[in-house]
């Protein structure tokens, strides 16, 4: 488990980094926290010719709130989302979801943008990004573009990023008033990839659900937002009926693959169970106006 030979570059600025990417294209691979890339290198499953280490780029180390958006630079470690109290207020779903990512040691190194760019279909942060409608900022020599999360994930481990682009920032919209959020997942062991995970958001007003968000991890080749289930929830005047309808919708629509840990059938069952549980939790948070993740 030693990697094959690769060239190592550690640019100090975004401009230098995108220059390297422009020169090497698909032969280059960006290293941030290394929690996925380094094992892949050591297993010789990944064989980039050039590893572009962005850990020297101080300009990418920011976590700020700006005009209704939480901006997470590419060097921000996952641990900061749970450590910095403001995240719990601004994007509570993110603060809750991140605690399911591996273990503290992994979150101390792993970056938020790294997890998004790696695009593991069972990972938590991509599902959270899809649920809240995050936007991903890609930088290349030809400029900057923003990609909505739902268009960003195109397949397992595959994103809309071009080989010459660097994901420099993820932007998460701050939660609106009356919203409550919850992230739940089932894994046999805490910290594993989810057998199934659900990110849920509910906007409550006058004792009714006005709006909802539901996105799933481990339920398909990419994180899935399930608008049918959201609609089913909002359409029902009775909350419990709505929750049941949303759960049934999840079971009906999702077609996850089975693997050694869970059959497709079990995953669909879990999606339905977690849909109901997450919606109830999100509802309780929305209707008590606390909005978000409780520690």
């Amino acid at each position: 488990m030693k990697p094959p030979v690769f060239d190592y570059q550690d640019p100090a600025s975004v401009e230098e980094a995108v220059d390297v990417l422009a020169r090497h294209g698909a032969a280059a691979k960006v290293l941030a926290g290394g929690q996925s890339l380094v094992p892949l290198l050591n297993l010789r499953l990944a064989r980039p010719e050039v590893v572009v280490d962005i850990n020297r780029i101080d300009a990418l180390d920011y976590l700020t709130e700006e005009s209704g958006w939480l901006r997470v630079g590419a060097r921000v470690r996952q641990r900061r989302l749970e450590r910095e109290g403001d995240v719990r207020r601004t994007v509570p779903l993110l603060a809750e979801a991140v605690r399911f990512v591996g273990h503290p040691q992994i979150r101390n190194r792993g970056t938020v943008c790294g997890s998004l760019a790696h695009a593991d279909p069972a990972a938590e942060l991509p599902a959270a990004a899809v649920a809240v409608g995050a936007r991903l900022v890609a930088h290349s020599r030809s400029g900057i573009r923003e990609i909505p999360a739902e268009e960003f994930f195109t397949g397992p481990l595959t994103t809309a990023l071009r080989p010459d682009e660097l994901l420099v920032e993820a932007r998460f919209p701050c939660t609106g008033p009356d919203w409550g959020w919850a992230f739940l997942e089932v894994s046999n062991r805490h910290g594993d990839y989810a057998l199934c995970g659900v990110a849920a958001g509910v906007r409550a007003r006058d004792g009714r659900v006005q709006d909802a968000r539901l996105a799933y991890a481990g339920a398909g080749p990419v994180p899935v937002r399930l608008r049918q289930a959201e609609v089913a929830l909002v359409e029902h005047a009775d909350l419990e009926e709505g929750i049941r309808a949303a759960a049934a919708e999840a079971r009906r629509v999702l077609r996850p693959d089975g693997d050694l840990h869970a059959s497709s059938e079990f995953r669909r069952h879990l999606a339905a169970v977690l849909t109901a549980r997450a919606l109830r939790l999100a509802w309780s948070r929305a209707s008590t106006c606390s909005g978000g993740a409780h520690a």
Partner: peptide, 13 residues
């Protein structure tokens, strides 16, 4: 084999 969980998705893609 370590990536077996993702192979159906990748193959379909």
């Amino acid at each position: 084999t370590l990536g077996s969980r993702m192979i159906p998705g990748i193959a379909r893609m």
